[in-house]
């Protein structure tokens, strides 16, 4: 009897906990959606009320004013190239560092991870100089390489921690079978650490998708610019049209959510089965 009471208390607590965070997480989404159907006047005067009349003009403005389609394609190219590039170099490094013994490996590792702390705004002057010297100013490549680089610390950190947790025996067996160094990387370690890869890939993609300051600093024409700059068109020197901006944000969120739901979720869900085999 007592045990049952205990069990149902836990159950209730569990759901209270889950639903509380659910509500908190859902709030911004509702706020965005509701506001995006308001007029600017309604929003300015009564930010928290429901719209008097639900109107879709903001969405029309968003697509029209911000030239969203070009920027959208640029964002997709830039964010996905940066993610692939970032995963490739960080996974190679994480593999070498987590699975091999050599001098300096801990120092290299610590230095790479310390990059997490760097306040990126401090780097505006050197980054602009670097990109100009590489001849990449106002190219998509400038953003790809910058985004891939800025996310090195986080991705390396995550992927390394996943790779470290793979049992040594698996690899030893492979070495016995005559697997070479790169084969161990591609055949054993990469597949086993895909939870880490997709997690850091998802985070890098979303970061790159949302990045604003460097997108503005390192480019000058809308041919190579990203969607976030389109959103900022609604905010000018003296005035911000937030409902239209929110409509643009709603539209631009969709790819990030898709990446999360279809890419990350699918792979993570498939893990349990994979892990049993391992």
């Amino acid at each position: 009897m007592n045990r049952n009471l205990w069990k149902s208390t836990i159950r209730v607590l569990k759901w209270v906990f889950l639903l509380f965070f659910f509500a908190v997480a859902l709030l911004p989404l509702l706020w965005l959606l509701v506001t995006s159907f308001k007029t600017e006047a309604e929003f300015t005067k009564f930010p928290l009320q429901l719209p008097h009349l639900w109107q879709i003009q903001n969405y029309i403005d968003a697509v029209h004013i911000a030239k969203m389609h070009i920027l959208f394609i640029n964002s997709i190219i830039i964010a996905s190239s940066a993610t692939i590039f970032n995963l490739l170099i960080t996974s190679m490094a994480a593999f070498a560092i987590s699975r091999e013994e050599f001098r300096l490996k801990n120092s290299i590792s610590n230095i790479l991870v310390a990059g997490v702390l760097v306040p990126i705004v401090a780097f505006m002057v050197p980054y602009l100089a670097l990109i100009k010297n590489l001849g990449l100013y106002n190219t998509r490549m400038a953003l790809v390489i910058t985004y891939a680089a800025i996310n090195i610390p986080i991705s390396f950190f995550l992927i390394r921690s996943f790779m470290t947790s793979i049992p040594k025996e698996l690899e030893e067996a492979a070495i016995m079978d005559g697997c070479s160094f790169p084969q161990r990387y591609t055949k054993i370690i990469l597949p086993l650490s895909r939870a880490g890869l997709v997690t850091s890939g998802t985070l890098t993609f979303i970061w790159a998708w949302n990045e604003f300051i460097y997108a503005l600093l390192l480019t000058s024409s809308s041919r190579v610019r990203t969607i976030q700059l389109g959103i900022s068109f609604f905010s000018t020197q003296f005035r911000s049209n937030y409902p239209a901006m929110y409509a643009a944000i709603v539209l631009t969120m969709i790819p990030s959510i898709l990446v999360y739901v279809f890419f990350h979720d699918k792979i993570i869900s498939g893990l349990t089965a994979g892990a049993v085999k391992g």
Partner: peptide, 23 residues
């Protein structure tokens, strides 16, 4: 193996130097 390790670390070291250590 040592050569492979070097090769695997080279890209990250280059990029990290350019985008973190130099700045």
């Amino acid at each position: 193996n040592a050569r492979w390790i070097l090769l695997f670390l080279l890209p990250i070291v280059l990029l990290y130097t350019a985008f973190f250590i130099y700045p």
